[in-house]
Design a protein around this nucleic acid. Structure first.
Lengths: 118, 118
DNA sequence: TTGACAGTTGAATAAATGTTCAACTATAAT
DNA sequence: ATTATAGTTGAACATTTATTCAACTGTCAA
């Protein structure tokens, strides 16, 4: 049924389509989770970080040098990646080494590159 | 070689790591393209629209009703999706029907849902 | 041709976000 | 102990971005 008489003033409703789609719709939580993950990868700085640590475990210093960015900027984005469990890390002396949490992100990036090519 | 003496003041450099990573690094253009695509899917409204039209070709009215949002808001986001060639559309009378441009996005969403489950 | 409606668009507003700066913690070396 | 350095963090600032509002186009019906 039309839920939003107050927001949308349309009369053209394809009820069967709407019902069918509503049956297969993602939950609000799923939409939130999935879009949040994409949003995180949807920033060039974070994407580049992920790409860098996908190749090798590297310390924050190395990331800064590879990306020509300040330690602070990198560290802030690493905090975002940590909060989303996309990366793990271990300390060694004064350095902190980061690596990808799992292979899903790699897969995501590859599929996306395929798409771009077309 | 260290490129940013001015930005990062680190001394701990793992040169072999840096060289190896730089060899396999994505180009600036690739980083931009890929992150732009992810950013577009990384918005809950756009993600939901994509999910909706993945199931069936529907008109803007139907999308509005399914999502409880105004025609203007939906139309603005459809414009973004059009600009990125993620959707195609055809007109039928006063209505405009949208559908997914290809199956890549579906694949992306599925992989992402897998990731979320863990 | 007039009125009604599906959809688009530009400007304005409010909210979210990325980087910088400065202060801080923790580890290592002298 | 003191100093230097790798890394983190909070506040401030500037930029981006999503939605609303109002005006507009184009199609259909009377």
């Amino acid at each position: 049924m039309a839920k939003n008489k107050f927001i949308c003033d349309c009369n053209v409703l394809h009820q069967e389509s709407i019902d069918f789609i509503e049956t297969n719709m993602l939950t609000h939580q799923e939409i939130t989770d999935v879009s949040n993950l994409f949003k995180i990868i949807g920033d060039p700085t974070r994407l580049k970080i992920l790409w860098v640590i996908k190749e090798k475990e590297v310390c924050v210093c190395d990331i800064c040098n590879l990306m020509d960015m300040s330690k602070s900027a990198i560290s802030h984005q690493l905090a975002v990646l940590r909060a989303s469990n996309l990366v793990t890390f271990y300390k060694e002396g004064k350095s902190v080494f980061y690596k990808l949490a799992d292979g899903h992100i790699e897969k995501l990036i590859d599929i996306c590159r395929e798409h771009i090519k077309e």
